[in-house]
Simulated assay, not measured.
Amino acid sequence: MSENPKHDVRIFDRFTWTNVPRSHAFLNDQTLLIETEPQTDFWQRTSYGFRRDNGHSLLTRVEGDFVLTARFEFSPVYLYDQCGLLVRLDEENWIKASTEYENADISRLGSVVTNLGYSDWATTDISSEIRTMHYRISRKGQDFIIESSYQGVEWMQMRMAHLHRETESLQVGVYACSPQNSSFKCQVDRLVLEEAAN
């Protein structure tokens, strides 16, 4: 799954990598493959004490309210392997939505909201047999609705959240990481970024 510049079609023309993975590929105008590197994560301080801001993310800058959706297929192999959507102001203020692998039986469908350098983590246990998930994040001012769907049709609200640092401009897109000494592969497609309806 190494990059092949001759065949890559950059489906995200306005998107740029932060912490680019060594192995990734744009298969066509719809699909991105990522293979994570070990010891990568997004987390700030809470409970565990550490700070890590080196996960792989492909982001674009947006102004104002938006709705961001994408579909993910994933094959996690080790604790906390994850991929999903990311909304980012800076290292200490951001939101992510994903499924984090726990063990062969359960994974954590959840979201992390990081405000002023402290992360939280809200989760629901789901079967680790689930390897496909759609996510949607909608912004209205400083408030966000985070949702998930198994098919991309019926959406389940995961949470409402608020970013405390006021800003008009944010970076949004997709991310993947492997916090432990491991690596896994995921696929992203059906990404849509649009203005929120009034």
Rank of each mutant, 00 (worst) to 15 (best):
N4A: 07
N19K: 08
R22A: 12
S23A: 14
N28R: 06
L32R: 05
E35T: 14
T40M: 04
T40E: 10
S47G: 06
Y48Q: 09
N54S: 14
L59A: 02
G64D: 05
L68A: 10
L68D: 08
F74T: 02
Y78F: 11
L85D: 03
V87F: 02
E91I: 05
E91G: 04
N93H: 14
W94V: 02
I95S: 00
K96V: 04
K96F: 01
S98E: 11
N103T: 05
D105M: 10
D105T: 14
S107V: 01
S111E: 04
T114C: 15
N115C: 13
N115D: 12
N115K: 03
S119A: 08
S119L: 04
W121P: 00
W121L: 15
I126K: 01
S127G: 09
S128P: 04
E129R: 12
H134W: 14
H134D: 09
I137H: 00
Q142W: 01
D143C: 08
F144N: 00
M158D: 13
M160C: 05
R165I: 09
E168C: 07
L170T: 05
A176K: 01
C177N: 11
S178Q: 02
N181C: 07
S183Q: 13
V188I: 15
R190M: 12
L193C: 13
E194G: 04
